[in-house]
């Protein structure tokens, strides 16, 4: 474990709980893409299947349980409890256009052709594009609530910190995983546009609105 990965995991945890609290407190999921949340639930479920077979550490197992439970809870709040506030008219990204190609790629490019490894690879590829429905929804509505932009900033920062973690691990532990690094770069690059808007607007107290 290193500081980059620890801060990255905590940033990821923060993002998930900021969103969960926003929906719970405001009793509304306006401006939030349910499709992205479904993809994130799929990412965690397919990645953490080894929860019961490979014990790494208490921290690792605890975080896996928290990530799965909190993301499933978010999907539950969005599609069941506060379904009336779900903005399906703007959440129209065709996620099958993500899941199918990612599924195919996971079969073709992986470290080991075993079910668990292919599912892990699928999860890594899917996570890199899972935020697209959310970014697409913001581009359609033209703006995002401030709390939603904080959520996105924390979520985007987590994988950017993981890139630093991989640089650290390469030099100090000789650890390198090309699949995770490439997907992590794609994932972080997708946030660049948002990061620019967040830093130039939200940091100065303005609302995040995309240039029309």
């Amino acid at each position: 474990m290193n500081i980059f990965r620890l801060v990255g995991d905590l940033s990821h945890l923060l993002a998930i709980f900021v969103l969960l609290l926003k929906i719970w407190k405001s009793r509304s999921c306006a401006g939030v893409s349910g499709k992205s949340q479904i993809l994130f639930a799929l990412v965690f479920i397919t990645r953490y299947l080894d929860l019961f077979t490979n014990f790494i550490s208490v921290y690792n197992s605890l975080m896996k349980v928290i990530f799965i439970a909190s993301t499933v809870a978010t999907v539950y709040l969005m599609y069941i409890k506060f379904k009336a506030t779900y903005d399906s008219n703007h959440d129209t990204f065709r996620i099958e256009f993500l899941v199918v190609p990612v599924g195919g790629l996971a079969f073709l490019v992986n470290h080991d052709f075993t079910p668990l490894e292919i599912l892990w690879t699928f999860s890594i590829y899917l996570e890199s594009v899972a935020i697209l429905p959310q970014l697409f929804m913001i581009s359609k509505t033209g703006e995002a609530e401030t709390i939603t932009s904080h959520y996105l900033f924390a979520l985007g920062s987590y994988r950017a910190l993981y890139l630093l973690n991989w640089i650290y691990r390469y030099y100090f532990e000789g650890y390198f995983d090309l699949i995770a690094v490439v997907a992590g770069c794609v994932q972080t690059i997708l946030y660049c546009d948002f990061f620019y808007l967040y830093i130039t607007k939200v940091m100065w107290g303005k609302k995040l609105s995309l240039p029309a």
Partner: peptide, 10 residues
């Protein structure tokens, strides 16, 4: 370069 057969990252 070590490719971990067990993924130890979240």
């Amino acid at each position: 370069i070590i490719i971990e057969d067990v993924h130890d990252e979240l």
